[in-house]
């Protein structure tokens, strides 16, 4: 059955009639886990001192050494919900937050964001839905633009508003969807280049449909490279895992420019870091 199923596009309904469908049980359990996570962890959390990581790894010497290394450069962390969208959510939150204090960067980003919809429609994405995601995305971008770089007013109000919007499923997930589309658009526009990064027999378009555009699909290097190229923003990712040594390795995407967004990666998950 597995061989058959690989190339099919419909479902095997009553082949396994009467017997309890194991996969269905696994899925049910998965949904329950997801529900528990969504009830206990906010989409984007409050800013916390980095020492909260130490508590997490109290009895783990390898990680404690690495947290120590990390704390030489970073003082705070903001956690995101581990729902497979964390890279996109962390990235957009951190970047928009940065834009509040950087008018020049905002102007640059605004032009790219404004033109992004036409690129997607030209690639064949359905205009109707793309427009819907785009409008919500731009609504948030423009709110940031209202205050970006304005040193005469306090930014507390807009910071709270941003935090609030990122914790409202409607806005927050729409932003994630739209960034996934921008990422997919970048991969497809430059498919000759990105094809080299894709394992197996998949085309770039297949990869986008299966790994980029669907919600809750985790991000890999290729997603980060594509998004940072599409928006022309440098992202620094600090990789903290159980590997040897006491240092936390950093990777800049793309290399050589000044990172505006700093993320902490622990296997399977991204959070935001602050100097």
């Amino acid at each position: 059955m597995a061989d058959d199923a690989a190339s099919s596009s419909t479902c095997t309904g009553n082949l396994v009639d009467n017997s309890i469908n194991q996969d269905e049980l696994i899925m049910k359990q998965q949904r329950e886990i997801e529900k528990e996570i969504s009830e206990s962890i906010p989409l984007v959390g409050e800013i916390e001192p980095l020492s909260s990581l130490e508590k997490e790894y109290n009895e783990d010497p390898i990680y404690l050494l690495k947290v120590k290394d990390l704390s030489a450069k970073y003082k705070h962390i903001r956690r995101t919900r581990p729902d497979g969208n964390c890279f996109f959510r962390a990235f957009s939150y951190a970047y928009l937050e940065h834009l509040l204090t950087d008018r020049q960067e905002y102007e640059k980003f605004y032009e790219i964001a404004k033109n992004s919809k036409d690129i997607l429609v030209a690639l064949g994405f359905p205009q109707f839905t793309v427009e819907d995601f785009y409008e919500t995305f731009m609504e948030v971008v423009l709110r940031v633009g209202d205050k970006a770089g304005d040193s005469s007013v306090s930014l507390d109000g807009i910071r709270n508003e941003l935090h609030d919007k990122f914790n409202k499923q409607g806005y927050s997930d729409y932003i994630v969807v739209y960034l996934r589309l921008i990422t997919s658009g970048q991969l497809q526009t430059q498919h000759d280049f990105y094809q080299n990064f894709i394992e197996g027999m998949r085309t770039v378009t297949d990869f986008c449909r299966q790994e980029v555009e669907p919600m809750y699909k985790e991000s890999d290097h290729i997603h980060i490279i594509a998004l940072s190229n599409a928006l022309n923003v440098c992202v620094r990712v600090k990789y903290m895992d159980r590997g040897e040594g006491s240092q936390v390795i950093a990777h800049d995407f793309p290399e050589g420019s000044k990172p505006l967004v700093h993320l902490l990666y622990r296997p399977g998950h991204y959070d935001i870091l602050y100097a």
Binding site: A6, S8, T12, D23, T129, V130, P214, K217
Partner: peptide, 28 residues
């Protein structure tokens, strides 16, 4: 109706994960 685009990725009850197109938020 059993058609792959009405199932989310990772929703593998039907065992057709790889080759076929799944639900995407852009669908109308």
């Amino acid at each position: 109706v059993c058609i792959s685009i009405l199932h989310e990725p990772g929703d593998d009850k039907w065992g057709y994960e790889k080759a076929s197109e799944r639900w995407l938020p852009v669908h109308t």
